[in-house]
Design a protein around this nucleic acid. Structure first.
Length: 439
RNA sequence: GGCGCUAUCGUCUAACGGUUAGGACAGAGCCCUCUCAAGGCUUAAAUACGAGUUCGAUUCUCGUUAGCGCUACCA
């Protein structure tokens, strides 16, 4: 895999955007073998431009920036293809003005009269065809000698022997220009596959500017997404396995993914003002979280906990059990370091509604009593704990629920969670009883 | 305006020209239950519109409408 940074636009070329690309790719485990930056390959691009010019397939346009359409004859006001004075300028004049240092744009001399059809077969959109009569004389080199995206992209594709160009559908109609460049430069034309766009709920194209968090892969990482869950979500936007499968492993996806199965219509990422997360993405993450082999999940949890400042001695068997127990009610990795804190360390906050459970009349003293009795008991299993607790509730004239909910609150700092009896055995006798004593 | 692309539940999507138009998420309800999840079950919800071809059109053709893209010395 080649990672090529298309950074010929100096204005938008920032370290931050480069970091974001690297971070996102690394998080997803999409590692590259080679990296190139177009801004470091300008000589190659200019060479290709020179070659096209030498063949008479490009010309210098000395029109100042922004004035291309001025002075146009108004029979087709909106339609600009080229400026005849520039396109038809004599070589002598062109050379003279260039030698005099006058800035110019190098434009591709698109075939006119007779026009011809440029054709290619897109792997997703099928047969495509467009008349050169509808293609304007696009720029190859800007007046500051920087290559345009079109030129740089094609020149690099040729040089790097790119086999497949897979990109957004917004480039579908640019592809005709690219084919013209490939032909003029004498390069082999790669296979093209255009993908439908991801759009916002209001139908507009997703953009970094307007939908920053939604389009940034690192957002999902920071929200506690498993990489495979994110990939699973994205792959289902514009493509499906056709057999009603939703949750899929990376291996399954690699096995069955194909260009032919890709849809041609844009897909909406269903986020809201409150959350950048599509509900289906959240669901897929929770599905992966609870169904992947627990040993595979452990490294993620460990990383998450250490990021939260917690040092936990993985892989202790009881920790594995704890992760396995609570993951069915968690949605993201972040939950382990927040809601799951009490399972891993002894310092954890007591939620307000958990405190309410403990404030029930008789709850605290009964729980302390329970602690003492369990301490004295030789057995410490779910069964023995339940028997002891129910017996105590009976004696105190309390509903068992008071003690059950109270125990959960004391043990985890939360009013909701797994079976209270199971909790005792997960947390361990010594620590569990200490937590009861401390209510 | 020109050129190109697209159109199935709210969203993501399935359906050799013949299905009660299927699944998933989100929603509603029920079951399970010590709480919360999970899980199981049920429910509501769609072929943009109009012609044509055909015994029969979500599916093929044309038109309309709508959306998106390109139309830059951005990518």
């Amino acid at each position: 895999m080649i990672l090529r940074i298309d950074d010929t636009d100096v204005e938008r070329n920032t370290q931050a955007s480069l970091d974001s690309i690297h971070d996102g790719l690394q998080y997803l485990g999409l590692n590259w073998d080679e990296q190139y930056r177009q801004s470091e390959r300008l000589d190659l691009h200019r060479e290709v431009a020179a070659r096209i010019y030498a063949k008479g397939l490009a010309y210098r346009d000395f029109t100042p920036a922004g004035q291309e359409k001025e002075g146009q004859n108004d029979d087709e006001p909106q339609r600009w293809l080229f400026n005849p004075a520039m396109r038809d300028m004599s070589d002598e004049e062109s050379d003279r003005r260039a030698a005099a240092g006058e800035p110019f744009v190098l434009r591709f001399k698109v075939l006119r009269e007779p026009a011809r059809f440029v054709q290619f077969t897109d792997q997703v959109y099928g047969a495509q065809s467009k008349s050169t009569a509808d293609i304007e004389d696009f720029a190859l080199l800007r007046s500051d000698k920087m290559p345009t995206y079109h030129l740089a992209s094609c020149a690099d594709d040729i040089d790097l022997k790119i086999s497949h160009v897979v990109r957004g559908q917004d480039h579908l109609s640019n592809t005709f220009k690219h084919i013209l460049i490939f032909e003029a430069a004498g390069g082999e034309i790669p296979l093209f596959a255009h993908l439908p766009l991801l759009i916002a709920p209001d139908g507009t194209k997703l953009s970094k500017r307007r939908h920053g968090p939604v389009v940034s892969v690192t957002t999902y990482r920071d929200l506690g997404f498993l990489p495979q869950a994110f990939i699973n979500f994205v792959v289902l936007l514009g493509w499906s396995p056709k057999d009603n499968r939703e949750q899929m492993s990376l291996e399954e996806i690699q096995e069955i993914f194909s260009f032919e199965g890709i849809n041609r219509s844009n897909a909406v990422v269903n986020f809201t003002e409150e959350s950048p997360l599509d509900p289906k993405a959240a669901w897929l993450n929770s599905q992966h979280l609870r169904s992947m082999p627990v040993e595979q999940l452990l490294p993620y949890v460990e990383k998450e906990l250490s990021a939260a400042g917690l040092t936990v001695p993985f892989p202790e068997p009881w920790l594995t059990d704890a992760v396995d127990l609570i993951r069915t009610r968690f949605f993201t990795l972040n939950d382990f370091g927040s809601r799951g804190r009490a399972y891993f360390v002894d310092e954890y906050p007591m939620a307000g509604d958990a405190r309410e459970k403990l404030d029930k009349p008789g709850a605290r003293e009964s729980l302390r009593e329970l602690s003492a009795r369990l301490e004295a008991s030789s057995e410490f299993t779910e069964g023995s704990i339940e028997a002891e607790l129910r017996k105590l509730a009976d004696e105190k004239g309390l509903k068992a629920g008071i003690l059950i909910n109270g125990a959960r609150a004391a043990l985890t700092g939360q009013s909701v969670g797994p079976s209270a009896f199971h909790l005792f055995t997960i947390i361990g006798k010594e620590r569990a009883l200490a937590r009861l004593r401390a209510v």
